[in-house]
């Protein structure tokens, strides 16, 4: 799905940073141990992460165009096309959790704005299914119950009319508060992991296309640990588990052979819980209320006009 070999968004900035790393450090490889590598890596992450909150402010799409002013003309062309359909973007931190974090905010914001109690009840039923699946898989209850509780609490709080109800500002604040935001991200990771393991026969070939790991290993190394990036397996599993369609719009440097440029998107339409997932491509019937902008390696939230 995400195989766009030439689809690298301009990395010029990152590369110029790399060259400025002290040369003396590199000469000293023999004394450079794993610990040091990890220390350096986490230092880089810490610096990077402070540049942008977990969930940013809503920005007009023009801010996206500004980013690529001197970049690829294909990207600029595509942003122009995006402009016709989408009004705004909300960036998320590129810490490996951006898909889950984007989903979290987009979903809760949707419930808050639509006040769709039926949808909230529907998703709660699915969440209970995931809880049962995890129990059946042998997970110790206390290792996941806090994450479940925290998500359900957020879900209740965005529905207005109770003492605990929160404002939109409060939702943004909570999404930036690590003790809420990371817990909800982790909740989605558990949900994703439970779905992948529950339907391991379905997911196995996809996982083998990504790594040589078994389904269980994949969940242990690529789904459950925080900061592990999401791929189409994660998105499919989360969308199926919760029954929430997700549209992913691709912004990359791919173009058609004849030089014409169009923006591709893929709709993840949840498969029914009891039937084998046969979904693929864009179905006319569903209209996802969550739209994410994918640039290779990163997800942000898109807002329709």
């Amino acid at each position: 799905m995400q195989s766009n070999p030439d689809a690298r968004v301009d990395n010029a900035d990152a590369e110029s940073n790399l060259t400025s790393v002290e040369v003396s450090l590199i000469d000293d490889w023999q004394n450079f141990r794993d610990d040091d590598v990890m220390q350096q890596q986490s230092d880089i992450q810490a610096v990077e992460s402070e540049k942008i909150p977990f969930v940013g402010d809503k920005e007009p799409l023009s801010s996206l165009a500004d980013e690529y002013k001197t970049g690829s003309p294909i990207l600029l062309e595509k942003i122009k096309i995006l402009n016709e359909q989408y009004a705004a973007i909300r960036r998320t931190r590129g810490d490996g959790n951006c898909f889950f974090r984007s989903f979290m905010f987009a979903y809760l914001e949707h419930i808050m704005e639509s006040q769709d109690k039926a949808e909230a009840d529907r998703i709660k039923a699915n969440v209970e299914q995931c809880r049962l699946t995890l129990q059946k898989l042998g997970y110790t209850e206390f290792t996941f119950e806090d994450f479940f509780a925290l998500f359900l609490e957020q879900l209740d709080d965005v529905i207005q009319g109770s003492d605990a109800s929160i404002s939109h500002d409060e939702l943004v604040q909570r999404s930036r508060d690590q003790s809420v935001s990371d817990y909800v991200v982790m909740f989605f990771r558990f949900v994703t992991s439970s779905e992948v393991q529950k339907r391991s026969d379905f997911f196995e070939p996809f996982i083998q296309g990504l790594t040589s790991a078994s389904v269980q290993q994949f969940c242990k190394t690529a789904v459950e640990p925080m900061g592990e990036e999401s791929d189409h397996v994660h998105i499919t599993a989360l969308s199926d588990a919760l029954g929430v369609p997700i549209r992913v719009v691709y912004l990359d440097r791919s173009s058609c052979d004849n030089g014409s440029v169009s923006v591709n998107h893929h709709d993840f339409a949840p498969a029914g819980n009891d039937q084998p997932s046969a979904q693929n491509g864009s179905l006319e019937a569903i209209s996802p209320f969550i739209t994410l902008l994918y640039r290779p390696g990163h997800y942000d939230i898109l807002y329709s006009k």
Binding site: M38, T140, F142, T143, F147, M186, K220, E224, P225, M226
Partner: peptide, 14 residues
């Protein structure tokens, strides 16, 4: 904690 990247919240002290 020598390998924080491998740790997962579904593990415990036990």
């Amino acid at each position: 904690n020598h390998h924080p990247e491998h740790w997962q919240p579904s593990w415990s002290v036990r």
